[in-house]
Simulated scan of single mutants.
Amino acid sequence: MKGILLVNLGSPDSTDTKDVRKYLDEFLMDERVLDLPYWKRFLLVKGIILNTRPKKSGAAYKKIWWEEGSPLVVISERFAKKVSDKVDIPVALGMRYGSMSIEKGIQELVNKGVDEIYLMPMYPHYAMSSYETVVVKAEEVLKNKFPQIKMETLPVFYNEVNYIDAMVNNIQKQINDFDFDHILFSYHGIPERHILKSDTTKSHCKIDGSCCNTPSKAHETCYRHQCFETTKEIIKKLDMKGKTHSNSFQSRLLKDPWLKPYTDFEFERFAKEEGIKNLAVVTPAFVADCLETLEEIAMEGKEQFQEAGGQKYKHITCMNDNDDWVDVAVKWVNDWKDKTVEVL
């Protein structure tokens, strides 16, 4: 029997410092997130970050936490339920980090008689710290715990027409009554070295103004290129009415060079240097609202922009569990059922 495993990032079980610390420990000790030698990662995470960051992150989570729990988890559960209601094979939900593990999701499917899984990482773009780590973890769990189970994987969908159409519809509905000057496409940031490490050609990526626009096999795993392509495809179909747009990257960690421009710097620059008064912000790297969108963009971003002189500010919520997005996932599920899908 075939079954579907939807996977997103994950969340602490609560906003308590101990739960946030446990979650951050698993997240930051992932070698594809903090790609340092184990001993350096251990000393940095265990010796420094986990002594200070959990309390700060817990306070941020408290600002966005819902009565039902973590917004990311609640939204993902709603999405999974809607997809399940529209397909005739089992659907389970797992998270890369936290108690709602990938292993638990696989076990749920196995308990229902599933022996062939379609893994659907809920990440439009390829990055070693998001899409890649989900696939590697799922493969590891299958090898160690469920060697009899076959698995195929949904490719990244950053420019897939149905995803783009769903994104455009979601954005358009939210800006129809908002007289914006500029739309900022804010993507989750990653260290620049991750781009170079993911370059399968080992020579193409320069992180300059040209490499992302020069055709190359490297683009199959280039997060930066894929982000820019998503924006281009959305803009082609979005009714901009002469308005301007740009890209930026948010949520950087530590002091290493990350992809630029930085979103928080752009908020201030827009208001002080560009004269932008009314700003809309879209976060296409996220399919479900979470800490990075609800707190960092919707709350802190608005404050930063308006303190710098901006006036109106609108955070475009993610697609979450809206019907357009559910229908896209259902189509992918049904397509997989009906034909052979290339195993990544």
Rank of each mutant, 00 (worst) to 15 (best):
A280P: 08
L34D: 10
D199T: 11
G113I: 12
R21Q: 13
A285W: 02
E300H: 10
A329K: 03
I149P: 12
N169E: 09
V114T: 07
H245M: 09
V281W: 01
S210F: 13
I64F: 09
I207P: 05
L142R: 11
I190V: 15
G209R: 11
S70E: 09
S11E: 06
E108G: 15
P37Y: 08
K62C: 08
G309N: 14
E220V: 03
K112F: 01
I297C: 10
P71E: 11
V135L: 14
I64G: 10
I195H: 00
N169I: 13
K339A: 11
K2Y: 04
N162R: 12
E233D: 06
E139V: 00
W332V: 08
T317R: 14
F267R: 02
S198R: 01
K173T: 05
Q311T: 07
K63H: 10
F267Y: 13
K55L: 10
S101G: 15
I102F: 01
N322S: 06
V7L: 10
S14H: 14
L279N: 11
V83H: 05
P12H: 09
F185H: 05
M100H: 14
L184A: 04
L142V: 04
K260V: 05
E68R: 15
E273A: 10
F267D: 00
T200G: 01
I89D: 09
F249A: 07
K104C: 09
R252A: 00
V135K: 06
K243S: 11
A92H: 11
V20A: 03
T15R: 08
V33S: 05
A218I: 15
E342T: 15
R269P: 12
D25F: 09
E296I: 06
A127P: 11
I175N: 08
G189V: 04
F228I: 11
K86P: 03
K202D: 13
V110R: 10
A218Y: 03
G58K: 08
P261R: 03
T214C: 12
H315V: 03
Q250T: 03
G209C: 07
K81D: 15
D264K: 13
K104V: 06
L93F: 03
E116K: 04
E77L: 05
D335M: 00
Y158A: 07
T263F: 00
K243E: 00
Y223F: 09
P191L: 06
H125W: 06
L44A: 15
I183P: 07
A280E: 01
S14L: 08
K272F: 05
V168W: 00
T230S: 06
D199F: 10
M167A: 04
L93I: 02
K272I: 14
E26K: 07
K197C: 14
L72W: 09
M151T: 01
D19F: 09
F305E: 13
D256A: 15
I234W: 07
L28I: 04
V341I: 15
S70H: 01
V73W: 00
Y38C: 08
H204W: 10
